[in-house]
């Protein structure tokens, strides 16, 4: 168990959750894991249970059945709640509704203040966190003067200052414009690569999902598909049947394939498509 915990940030086993007075489970018998340093993406149409799952990772909800371990801590254990929340930080969808303070740096300090971190230490950590998301210059600004992408970066900094093992982004890019989305995705990818923080990204954007190490597709509270982006998206028919889409280049690969051109079905990006076309050419 000790070893499993070291390499896994989140493990769920037979995880189910039913909202009070609901008729069926919002999350049903889910088993998944998020390894140290792994970038996991959870896809699924609205109402498929993604957001409920995210809230189970952070002990905001406690499983009706089954278990969630965050860094080896069972989220059902009341005494560990704050340790779990410190380890599994969450960034939510609406940038306006998760910033508490009237000054950027104070918002970043919020979680640390809650955990009773000494003021000198808070200072050091918020400076680090703001630098890591590229918002140092705006430390004294009022949140409502920032763009959506900047607000989400502040929210990420607030989580980062807690020194988490895993950051869960619950549709955090959904309300942003393309440049805001790019800001957030670049920040998240860098934290993942350079700081080794595990990422759980919940999104509707397939191009974002394509950047993950592992994708879980949810449907009706259950995990319907699992695999690397290539494995998942190359099954275009199934993905679409689950109310989702595939990256444009994967769709194009399908078109070419149907027309008789032997293109790999798991092309994800423009670069790969170019390579693929050139490869075919040099072969033919």
């Amino acid at each position: 168990m000790e070893n499993r915990q070291k390499e896994n940030r989140i493990i769920t086993d037979g995880l189910s959750y039913r909202y009070p007075e609901a008729e069926r489970d919002a999350v049903s018998d889910v088993a998944l894991r998020v390894r140290a340093g792994e970038f996991v993406c959870i896809l699924g149409h609205n109402g498929s249970g993604k957001s409920t799952l995210a809230k189970l990772f952070n002990a905001l909800y406690v499983p009706t059945e089954g278990t969630v371990w965050v860094c080896g801590m069972d989220t059902k254990d009341d005494e560990l709640v704050f340790d779990i929340r410190q380890n599994a930080g969450m960034v939510f969808q609406n940038p306006d509704n998760q910033i508490v303070a009237t000054v950027v740096e104070e918002d970043v300090a919020f979680g640390l203040e809650n955990n009773g971190v000494p003021p000198q230490e808070i200072r050091v950590r918020i400076d680090e966190a703001l630098a890591a998301v590229g918002m140092s210059e705006r430390a004294k600004k009022a949140p409502h003067m920032l763009s959506g992408g900047q607000k989400q970066r502040v929210a990420i900094a607030g989580v980062l200052a807690m020194r988490p093992s895993v950051i869960i982004l619950d549709e955090s890019t959904a309300m942003l414009d393309p440049s805001g989305r790019a800001e957030v995705m670049n920040t998240v990818r860098r934290l993942n690569r350079e700081e080794g923080i595990s990422i759980v990204l919940i999104t509707h954007f397939m191009t974002e999902a394509a950047q993950a190490d592992m994708i879980y597709v949810m449907d009706g509270g259950k995990i319907a598909m699992t695999g690397t982006p290539r494995e998942v998206f190359s099954q275009i028919g199934r993905v679409r049947a689950l109310g989702l889409d595939v990256p444009p280049m994967t769709a194009l690969a399908e078109t070419l394939g149907k027309a008789g051109l032997p293109v790999r079905p798991d092309v994800l990006t423009v670069e790969e498509m170019v390579e693929e076309v050139c490869r075919l050419q040099s072969k033919g």
Partner: peptide
């Protein structure tokens, strides 16, 4: 918003 904010504050160990 109040609901969201309460959730976010809780998630941040409030």
């Amino acid at each position: 918003r109040a609901n969201d904010l309460a959730m976010a504050m809780e998630a941040r160990c409030y």
